[in-house]
């Protein structure tokens, strides 16, 4: 699956490169240079984000997070789920395994949905390492504020629809 996604990415890059080359050689050369420079600038951040986040994640007490998301935890649990989601460090493995472990450990579905959605939307580390350096700052903060209600909306929807 990962190979497929990688292949698709390179296929898109290649197709765009061919289109650029047919317009003009200079366009191709400039764009490639721009892309490579951007990539090189991101490398220290990726290094920090990927290699470093393992250490932050190693300190995360998974069972404790799971306990907080209990089915009876109500609105407080929901708020904890959202904050916990936002501050869960590391890559997708950590966020999803915490959520899955919580679900198995008896956490409420709405809480786990709120947790995974908050983590997907706000993961603080991703915000700092990827989004802020690359995107205009104004757009980043607007996005964060505009998405604040989403985990709660999702949890409310999960409660209304009943559990799967």
């Amino acid at each position: 699956m990962i190979v497929l996604v990688d292949g698709l990415l390179w296929a898109i890059a290649l197709a765009l490169g061919i289109i650029a080359a047919r317009r003009s050689r200079l366009l191709l050369r400039d764009s490639v240079r721009e892309g490579v420079i951007d990539c090189a600038r991101l490398i220290p951040r990726i290094m920090l984000g990927v290699v470093g986040s393992g250490y932050i994640a190693a300190l995360l007490p998974e069972e404790v997070v799971g306990r907080w998301l209990g089915a009876d935890s109500g609105l407080t649990g929901l708020c904890i789920a959202v904050i916990g989601g936002a501050f869960t460090p590391g890559g997708p493995v950590i966020g999803f395994s915490v959520g899955a472990a919580a679900l198995k450990g008896g956490a409420g579905t709405p809480q786990v949905i709120a947790y995974t959605i908050a983590w997907a939307l706000f993961a603080v580390q991703r915000l700092f390492i990827w989004e802020l350096p690359v995107m205009p700052e104004r757009v980043v903060w607007l996005r964060v504020v505009a998405s604040l209600p989403l985990p709660f909306l999702a949890a409310a929807a999960a409660m209304l629809l009943g559990r799967p």
């Binding site: 990415l9 898109i12 765009l16 289109i19 764009s31 490639v32 892309g35 991101l42």
Partner: peptide, 16 residues
């Protein structure tokens, strides 16, 4: 490699 592909796509999108 993914980072490089993404940065290239972004650079091409910007001009094309």
């Amino acid at each position: 490699p993914k980072v490089l592909a993404a940065c290239l796509i972004a650079a091409f999108v910007a001009v094309l």
